[in-house]
Amino acid sequence: MIHPREEQLALYSTGDLDPDALERIAAHLDECLRCRECADQFYQLQQVLATPAAEPDAKDLQNVRRRVMENLPRGVERRWRFEWAIALAALIALVIFLNRSLHSPAPLPVVPAQPVAAALLAQLPSSPIAIKELAMPRRASPRAPGLGSIALVARPDREPLIKIATTDPKIVILLTPSSPNEERTESNE
C-alpha cells in the first residue's frame, strides 16, 4: 500500500489538490486507519484556524488611527497651500498694477509754444531786461518733446529774444517779441 505524503493530506483537508489526487486519497483513506487519523488532525487544525479570532481591541484600533492621523505627512496639503499662495500673490500684483494704471497722473498737455511766449512777452518790463530762465515742468512722456525751459535773451541794441528749450535737446525755439508769429526753429544738430 502506498501512503500519501503528509503534505498531500494537509492539502486534502482543504481540497487544494487536483481532482484525480483528491479521488485517489479519498479511496486510500477508506482503507488506511493511520492516514485517516492524520487527515482528521488536519481537519481539526483547520477548524481551529478557521474559528474567528477575537477582533482587535477597539482601543488598539483607535490608538493606531490617532497615531496615523497625527503623523500624516502634510505634503499634499502643503502643495495646495503653496499653489494657493502663488495664485494669491499673482492676484495682488494684478490688482496693484491695474490700480496704478487707472490712477496714474495724466501726462501734461503739450502747451503750444506761441501762446506761452506771447503771455510771457506781455509781462516783460520795458527795459532793462535781465536774462531769466523759467523752470517749466517736464513732460512725462518721452515720445513727443515738451517744454523744457524758457529764457529771455537780452541783446544790445536789438530786441530781446525768447529762447524756448524743449525736452528734446535737439529742438530749440527762438522768438522775437515784435514778430511773435515769426518763429524759428533751430536745431542743435
Binding site: E6, E7, Q8, A10, L11, D16, F42, L45
Partner: peptide, 17 residues
C-alpha cells in the same frame, strides 16, 4: 504558496500532536 501551506500545516500538526 501551496507548498508553503502544506509544509506549514504538517509542522503545526506535528507540533500540536
Amino acid at each position: 504558496v501551496r507548498s508553503q501551506i502544506s509544509t506549514a500545516r504538517a509542522k503545526i500538526r506535528k507540533f500540536v500532536a
